[in-house]
């Protein structure tokens, strides 16, 4: 069983490496927040720990883990989407003036 899991790990790491090598530096921050959201998958382990009535210790630890993992998933996917929404191509030269007019207020 362990050897099968090792296969899965090595092949997944390999696929990850191949895919992620091609992510341009432009999107490195969204990449980090995306992998962060995806690693929130530890939620599936936390759910079992929190819900299988293995005593109060397991339940409490599982509960905290569920909170942390869910926060990562929800926050991670939302912030990735928010960032990716900001990346846009050069508009037509005619739009340039309009963009200047609708400039968002500078953050404090």
């Amino acid at each position: 069983m362990l050897i099968l899991e090792l296969y899965i790990f090595v092949l997944a790491a390999f696929v990850g490496y191949m895919v992620i090598t091609r992510v341009p530096p432009l999107l490195h921050t969204p990449l980090m927040s995306a992998t962060n959201a995806i690693s929130g998958i530890s939620l599936v382990g936390s759910l079992v720990a929190a819900g299988s009535q293995r005593g109060s210790v397991a339940t409490i630890l599982g509960f905290i883990a569920v909170v942390a993992a869910t926060a990562n998933i929800v926050g991670g996917f939302l912030i990735t989407d928010r960032m990716l929404r900001m990346f846009r191509r050069d508009p037509k030269p005619a739009d340039a003036g309009a963009n200047a007019a609708t400039e968002p207020p500078a953050a404090r």
């Binding site: 599982g62 883990a65 569920v66 909170v67 926060a71 929800v74």
Partner: peptide, 22 residues
């Protein structure tokens, strides 16, 4: 999984923390 109470509470609380973080 036989008891969903803690799970539901954790999911709700996590989402409440995650939303502002996102």
């Amino acid at each position: 999984i036989v008891d969903y109470r803690w799970i539901a509470a954790g999911l709700v609380l996590g989402a409440l923390i995650g939303y502002p973080l996102g």
